[in-house]
Nucleic acid binder design. Sequence first.
DNA 1: GATTGCTACGTTACCGGTAACTCATGCAGT
DNA 2: ACTGCATGAGTTACCGGTAACGTAGCAATC
Lengths: 335, 335
Amino acid sequence: MSRNAKAGLEDIARAAGVSKMTVSRVLRGSSGFSEETRARVMSEVERLGYLPNRIAAAFGSGGTSTLVGVCVPRFASSLFGSTLESINTSLMRLGYQSMIGSHDQLPEEEEIWLKGLASWRPAGIILAARRHTPETLSLLRDLTVPIVEMWDLNTQPIDVSVGFSHFDDGYTMGRFLMLRGRRRYGYVGAMANRVTTGRNRRDGFEAALREGGISLAASETLEDHPGFYAGYYGTELLISREPKLDGIYYHDDEMAIGGMAWLASRGIRVPDDIGIAGWGGMEAASIQPRRLTTTVVPTALIGKTAAELLVGRMRGDPVQDVTMIPTRLVPGETV
Amino acid sequence: MSRNAKAGLEDIARAAGVSKMTVSRVLRGSSGFSEETRARVMSEVERLGYLPNRIAAAFGSGGTSTLVGVCVPRFASSLFGSTLESINTSLMRLGYQSMIGSHDQLPEEEEIWLKGLASWRPAGIILAARRHTPETLSLLRDLTVPIVEMWDLNTQPIDVSVGFSHFDDGYTMGRFLMLRGRRRYGYVGAMANRVTTGRNRRDGFEAALREGGISLAASETLEDHPGFYAGYYGTELLISREPKLDGIYYHDDEMAIGGMAWLASRGIRVPDDIGIAGWGGMEAASIQPRRLTTTVVPTALIGKTAAELLVGRMRGDPVQDVTMIPTRLVPGETV
DNA sequence: GATTGCTACGTTACCGGTAACTCATGCAGT
DNA sequence: ACTGCATGAGTTACCGGTAACGTAGCAATC
């Protein structure tokens, strides 16, 4: 019970009457000791309250640590928060420790984070970004550790990729809306730091419309983080420029809900006057009077899969290069 | 540009014609070298693409690392997400690296996380929980590193505490509602893993009512994570048991918004028929037809302050034991 | 009986930095 | 001229593990 932070392998070894190396072997579970020795060592470990020293272990083994770097755009997003939590607990359960960073969609921030991370000699890296600086790519190459690119599926990954296609999500939603026979569509998006994360979804959406012979009637992309209020005033801006729209595709559900709030305040009915579609499958949609038409993203599954793929690669198991995690269009009552 | 991960201090030293120790001194900025030497060393550092090795540095200095452990209830919460992000970037800017964990309100999970963290010999710890297991407390004591308890203010901190009082927030809101002259109040809360985080707010709220000579007419605490939908059906449960209420105090804003959605679906008007108050100052409230009466919590400031206090303590600066970060009641239009 | 192979360890060297100490030099003050 | 001290280095030991290799003892094989 009384934990003695100063007890090291040497102390255990002396107490158990074996060598330091034998204690090391017992603690790491590799073979090379008798059951009797194991029991004696473990009882001393318990009695002395030995605390492993991973700094020394990582150093002694020449840089083979159990550290994993994880970099996402933001913590404070319901989707990334859930993915991050899933990665973190999965890695912890598998015996790895994560070092998390955020880049807010800025490749330069990712580069700064990566440089700091690299000095900890991580055993693997999980990234959630498609754009990287040349320095980042060069550093990733030099580190020669497994790398999982997640979220946005990269079909030509640096190493391993897991996620889904934003383009396909937009395309599928576009096709779905087209089936409703409406013709005049608008788009409301948001971009943080000049990077529209939803850009690929919008492109996919437009591609579907184009196939149907029409083009996007209006589009409004705010220079702000996506959120309820951005959807609210983005819709106001869009409608004031283009009052006669049949439907609006939103960056995500929260923006769609914000948009619906603005429409409701103007007496515009959904879906009678205008159809609404979001993306993400966010919880806020659950209390809307009408179920939101959206694309549900399995955030936790993506995180868990990313963690498992990385651990597989770090252990040297053969793993799939590209793993698609399907999203699901949920037809609601807003279209 | 071509980063050579294998170059170490020794290589730099040889190339610059000095000793390894001089290179170490130059890189860490401590004095003991001439400007000429510094320039020569730095140019070799640049040329060879030296990557610092913090594992070796932490090991060599006998465990004085720049690692900080941070443990919060959840990542995927708008409030904690924001605080976490703030801590992470603040620590990074100050030259520290964080290792983040989540405990989901379970002291046992916190203990497991702490044991894993301890083996990395962190230089400091930030915790967001009031309850700890005896083992956790004993381990925290043995680690002898600065500890910041944040979020819920602890006036008798283990080491340092920063945050606000949930009790006071509830009390202040209770007083505010009482001024409106209403008499019959209900409460809708949520608890994850049998721990009601909002318990202190509810207690404060009840204390205020008691001073006014009344008691809580009805209370409903769901065994679920707080969120929009929990507020929605929690309100349904509350009202079905106690239809005649003048006001409802909610665990947080998202639950209040969920509650308002349910009330709206029944044609119950806010604030005419019933007053509503939330807590947290969450973004979703920004699109409600009426501004929600709530308590705004400066989440990012708490994170930044926690990081700065910890770094102060780690550097040995004198820092305040207890730092109150005031929250602010924002009277909206729902009461 | 000699050789081989396996088990269960012990020995030794080393990972890449940092702390603590030593030492030569130059210059100001007495 | 001598002392004292700051400056700018070099030297040595060490942090606490792990990898690689060595070896004693014993059973199985040749």
